[in-house]
Design a protein around this nucleic acid. Sequence first.
DNA 1: ACATAATAATACTATTTTGGTATTATTCAA
DNA 2: TTGAATAATACCAAAATAGTATTATTATGT
Lengths: 130, 130
Amino acid sequence: MKLITRETDYAIRILKAIAEKPGRSAASIELSKELGIPVAFVRKILQVLARKGPLTSTKGKGGGFVLTTPLDKILLVDIMIMFQGPVSLGDCLFGKKLCGNRASCSLRCIILELEGTIRERIKNVTIASL
Amino acid sequence: MKLITRETDYAIRILKAIAEKPGRSAASIELSKELGIPVAFVRKILQVLARKGPLTSTKGKGGGFVLTTPLDKILLVDIMIMFQGPVSLGDCLFGKKLCGNRASCSLRCIILELEGTIRERIKNVTIASL
DNA sequence: ACATAATAATACTATTTTGGTATTATTCAA
DNA sequence: TTGAATAATACCAAAATAGTATTATTATGT
Ligand code: FES
Ligand code: FES
């Protein structure tokens, strides 16, 4: 069971790597080499970050990606949500369909509670702090 | 992300169903029909429970499975461990190998902390209480 | 003894999720 | 106008989970 998926993990590293090159744009090949992540995969992640997230891209020669938000304003949860969806410990399914006794189920209750704790704990964690 | 996997979920229901038939042994087909879980899958789960867990089986005509421990002595974690392994939120892997800066990593730290909270919370939860 | 009703053991298959590639189009600047 | 970059999207692979099938063994009632 993984709280942080590989894509999220890579996304964090990529953001940090870009932040280390202030004032100029970072090309995907450069990031790929630096981090040892396959270039095609880096691009895929960068695209998500560019579309939904805290960086912009410029095409063409000399192009690349630039942060639009400082790392200490980027929340870990937001990156997680981008790549893994909302933090959740799973709905109780019985067979393939949603389980009936959700309302009264104490296991569900525990799961929701734990979900809350996790959310609460990571709520304020920024990328800068990692 | 699922705290409880389907097998674990089924295992819990199966244990509860068996407990409702005190004094006699429950056959896998019976449990299968009652719970609507495919019989072959029920058997697979029962086998694990019989080998590592809180019930015994008797073969032959009139055979089946009997609880050896009352539900209020069976811990949820133990069932989880049987079917999913120890409660963990994942080791930080970089690429395919274990990440280097484990010692100083604050994300890892948060993850371990949350793991602890989860373990602490479910530590005393018995099957009877669900 | 023997047929039958049950589990035991284990190997196999299918589905889903995650991780990763490839391909083609577009854009910008020298 | 060419080449170095990203955009978009479709595709493929590996791993984890979910489920099936097959064969062997064991116990019991007759
Ligand atoms: S048994 Fe399904 S919500 Fe708990
Ligand atoms: S970056 Fe790997 S343990 Fe944190």
